[in-house]
Design a protein around this nucleic acid. Structure first.
Length: 916
RNA sequence: GCCCAGUUGGCGCAGCGGUAGCGCGUUCCCUUGACAUGGGAAAGGUCAUAGGUUCAAAUCCUAUACUGGGCACCA
């Protein structure tokens, strides 16, 4: 005998192991079926599964299982991402705890450690996904990694391709520099935070001591690198100063007043200090006016090239000192509170420093064109669609992509420099590598400005090669140096939908599975990842990478805040799975993943899921409890004569239709709701209740046949959402099923069959259910204990209705716990309470215990409702516009409503009269 | 500044043209042999505000107000 309460952990372990052992999730190589493919958004190898992963992967699993069970050969491609900066940061933290830095270790040893980390921890997350029930084959041969050999090939091929086409180039410009991660970032890797700061107004006097002008700035520390002050040419206020020179406070350096259209008249003071070395807009102005670029903040975020007192100070400290010095020297005119957004690093949230440096870029404009077309034409569809517009807007305003990172963990840029050819362009500064025995000349690391890649590029001295070239094609030289930078981790991610199939090799899998079907992802990486996959898909494969983008929201805490360690509001999915069961967690995630909206998640929400699991488990227990182990069950054969049988098939069929429709329109949440209420409300609460007495009659065999048919069918629809409980129960009833498969996943979910639609059965059962509810309400209101069987009288002038009721006497009796029902056309007996169900009046004779006042109050309340309903319907029908313009069936409906409300009113009135 | 969502019972959300549903919570009754992680019942919402379209609006349109998000700007 099964225990009363289901314990998930054992069951989950058993099935997740079994599924893997049996290779259930690998695609059938010989299948003729249409493929359905999803490539996993590869989780970073940074550690443990979080709620976001749980949501993302649950949704993918739902789709994969659903498709597989509706006739597709589905394949979910697993893998992990090396996760550049994020992973390197973790290791650096570890080193720090050991009192070391990556520089201490040197590049080679540091990378060794990184790989060791990957070997040890790289697959933890996949094992956790296995626990989550994901239909992913996580065997070593099947799992991809963004830095394994095959993916390396893909990265090189893509790089080479873009290089040959002239899209990749080294360039020098202002980039986003994270002084903490010590690397450049692309524009979309920068986040913005609103911050209360100040706007300082500073007096810049003329060089001859004249009045000069006043500028406003939020970053006074950068004034040490000012090389001009710009005003709008149309600004009358400053016209006389144009071309004159100002004396920069604190240093006395002379800087010109220039005119530039980009300066907005009336913004701030209308005069803009120009700092080409530390501000993107100023950099552009500097370009236009050929201004000198000074750098006063280093790549470590410390002050350099400045008066001694500031040197080596952090920028933020230098700011305080400079403000104080300005004030003391009388240059500070005013200081006002100012709110502006500060850019921060998406990995560590340190302040981003805009700095000039030489980086590798990809020209994006022409790559974006096919992606724009794909979104516009609907070749790639978004679910929900409202992300299409932002997606397009981003692509339309696309900037060149900075792909070089000054970290060590990643795909090293496959650019080589022949030391002989490059002599003269290269400096001799070292960049901390220990693996440079034979090095004569070295490439400057990009974080030391300036360096010379752009010169080498101009002279055609950059060699693109996967391995170290054997000899220089120009001079035959043998000594080479590889570019020190690595590629943005998103560069390899962008190739994922085809690199997983070993592109550029022309594999069968690539042929068979590309383009993939659906990509499931959170909106936060729509540009960072999705847009780039679309672009690379068209560029390298000539085809879109996927047809649908299924976008979900972010899992937040119950107040809507982002989960973060610092806020202490993180909910650990593993803990939740252990506590409530995996199916319960999946249930609550899915039911809330609606229309791409964020999910306010809390533990309480898991209760509903857990209860549902328990409910299903128990109905199973009930079924098994009443069947003999050796009993043979045949397929149920229509036509069915019992109204509840006809009704449950009707409801089941409707559920199937709704379920399928929802799934096809990417509404997993609603699909699950339909399954949920079918199982709980229709099947358990009504059908099984009605089946109970029948199990002891000659109907027994038929009833079981139907129970197994319906229940196994429901388990199939449930399987994509809650794989464990459904599999477990399926295995338990397998022997009673007609043609069971080894695993539930191999079964086919039923189709919608129009011929099973049975409106008559629905109508009749609805009647039975309504009468039952009315009687239950009376019993509850008059505190008749459930154990007490009582008599009911049902009166109606409608002969057909009386017939219907009498056909269902035993059902109503059973459901309402009555000893007998008398049907006829009778007056309300004395000492009875009553209710109205449509055209029928229900009387429960109760001797001596009726509280007259209470009954009267109750009836008056009902009467009031009934009168207002009749009133409403009457008014509607009196409205000639309604009668003329509304569709006929609406008018009919209203007429019926009026009739029913009026009948009810009349009855209630008479009942009340009798009480007086 | 531009754009996009959201505003529905105590809480979280569905519904998106015919007078409101779900889950959790609350109150009452019930340990009847699948399930108290259960059953039955009840209370509780004029669907943000103001206009408009329509025979009919939570549902469509237009403003407004909050809330959240994306993009741009940020001297």
């Amino acid at each position: 005998m099964l225990p009363k309460v289901y314990t998930p952990s054992k069951v989950e372990k058993r099935w997740s192991e079994k599924w893997q052992e049996e290779k259930l999730f690998l695609p059938d190589k010989n299948s003729e079926k249409e493929t359905y493919t999803i490539v996993i958004p590869p989780p970073n190898i940074t550690g443990a599964l979080h709620m976001g992963h749980a949501l993302n992967n649950t949704l993918q699993d739902v789709l994969i299982r659903y498709k597989r069970m509706t006739g597709f050969a589905s394949y979910w491609v697993p893998g992990t991402d090396h996760g550049g900066i994020a992973t390197q940061n973790i290791l650096e933290k570890q080193l720090k705890a050991e009192g070391e830095t990556r520089e201490d270790l040197g590049r080679e040893d540091f990378l060794k450690r990184m790989w060791q980390w990957y070997e040890e921890c790289g697959n933890i997350i996949l094992r956790q996904l296995k626990k989550l029930g994901c239909a992913l084959d996580i065997s070593k041969e099947n799992v991809r990694f963004t830095m394994d050999e095959k993916r390396k090939n893909a990265v090189f091929a893509a790089f080479k391709d873009l290089w040959d086409k002239g899209y990749i180039y080294p360039g020098e410009r202002i980039i986003n520099w994270c002084p903490r991660c010590k690397t450049a970032l692309s524009d979309i890797e920068v986040e913005y935070e609103e911050q209360n700061s100040k706007l300082w107004h500073v007096h810049y006097p003329s060089e001859n001591g004249g009045k000069g002008l006043i500028i406003a700035t939020t970053r006074p520390e950068t004034m040490l690198a000012d090389t001009a002050v710009a005003v709008n040419p149309k600004d009358e206020k400053y016209r006389s100063l144009l071309g004159k020179k100002l004396s920069l406070p604190l240093t006395g350096r002379k800087i010109p007043v220039i005119s530039d259209e980009s300066v907005e008249i009336g913004f701030g003071t209308g005069a803009l200090k120009v700092t080409p070395g530390h501000d993107p807009l100023d950099f552009e102005i500097g370009e236009r006016h050929k201004l000198e670029r000074l750098q006063v903040i280093s790549f470590d975020g410390l002050m350099i090239n400045c008066p001694e007192k500031y040197k080596g100070k952090k920028a933020i400290e230098a700011r305080k000192m400079i403000v104080r010095d300005l004030e003391e020297a009388g240059y500070l005119v005013k200081e006002e509170p100012y709110k502006h957004s500060v850019s921060t690093c998406y990995r560590c949230h340190a302040h981003i420093e805009p700095l000039i440096s030489e980086q590798w870029f990809v020209k994006m404009k022409s790559l974006a064109a096919p992606a724009i077309n794909a979104a516009e034409s609907g070749e790639i569809k978004f679910h929900p669609e409202n992300w299409k517009k932002p997606f397009l807007q981003w692509l339309e305003n696309i900037q060149d992509w900075c792909i070089s990172r000054q970290i060590w963990w990643g795909h090293r840029i496959p650019a080589w420099y022949c030391l002989n050819c490059c002599k003269g362009y290269l400096s001799t500064l070292s960049f901390g590598d220990k693996d440079s025995e034979n090095r004569t000349y070295e490439i400057l690391p990009a974080n030391i400005y300036p360096n010379n890649r752009k010169e080498l590029f101009k002279h055609g001295l950059i060699i693109i090669s996967k391995e170290k070239p054997s000899s220089c094609p120009k001079c035959g030289g043998k000594k080479f140096e590889q570019d020190p930078d690595v590629l943005d981790t998103w560069f390899s991610s962008a190739l994922w939908p085809f690199s997983v199939f070993n592109w550029p090799e022309k594999t069968k899998d690539l042929e068979r599975f590309y383009p993939t079907s659906t990509l499931v992802t959170g909106y936060e990486i729509l540009y960072l990842w999705v847009a780039r996959m679309v672009m690379s898909g068209y560029e390298h494969m000539g085809k879109k990478p996927f047809s649908h983008v299924y976008i979900h929201g972010t899992v937040r805490d119950k107040k809507g805040k982002k989960m973060s360690k610092s806020l202490g509001n993180v909910i650990d999915p593993l803990e939740m799975m252990a506590k409530y069961g995996t199916d319960a967690m999946r249930f609550s995630l899915i039911t809330q993943a609606i229309g791409g909206k964020d999910i306010p998640f809390s533990q309480e929400m898991l209760i509903g899921g857990r209860n549902f699991v328990n409910k299903i488990y128990n109905v199973m227990r009930f079924i098994l409890m009443h069947i003999d182990e050796n009993e043979k069950i045949k397929a149920p054969i229509p036509p069915f004569f019992d109204i509840s049988d006809r009704w449950i098939f009707h409801r089941y069929n409707e559920m199937i239709r709704n379920f399928r429709n929802c799934m096809e329109s990417f509404d997993a949440s609603n699909a699950l709701n339909h399954v949920y209420s079918f199982i709980w409300d229709d099947f358990c609460d009504w059908y099984i209740e009605l089946a109970k007495p029948r199990l002891e009659t000659e109907e027994r065999k038929n009833v079981f046949a139907i129970i197994f048919k319906i229940f196994s069918g429901a388990l199939k629809t449930l399987h994509p959402f809650m794989p464990y409980i459904s599999e477990e129960l399926y295995q338990n009833i397998k022997k009673y099923l007609v043609s069971p498969r080894k695993f539930l996943l191999d079964e086919e979910i039923d189709k919608f069959f129009p011929e099973l639609t049975d409106e008559a059965a629905l109508e009749e059962m609805t009647k039975v259910m309504d009468i039952t509810s009315k009687i239950r309400t009376l019993r509850s209101q008059f505190s008749i204990p459930p154990a007490q069987k009582i008599k009911a009288l049902i009166s109606s002038p409608d002969a057909r209705l009386r017939q219907t009721i009498s056909r269902n006497t035993f059902r109503i009796k059973h459901l309402s716990r009555l000893c007998s029902i008398e049907i006829g056309e009778m007056p309300k007996p004395p000492e009875s309470v009553c209710a109205i169900s449509g055209a029928a009046a229900i009387y429960l004779p109760i001797k001596g215990i009726i509280d007259i006042e209470r009954e009267k109050t109750r009836l008056l309340k009902e009467l009031k409702k009934s009168i207002s309903q009749a009133e409403y319907a009457k008014n509607k029908l009196n409205d000639k516009y309604f009668r003329e313009k509304a569709p006929k069936n609406e008018v009919e409906k209203m007429k019926q409503r009026k009739r029913e409300a009026e009948e009810k009113t009349a009855k209630l009135k008479s009942f009340i009269a009798e009480l007086e």
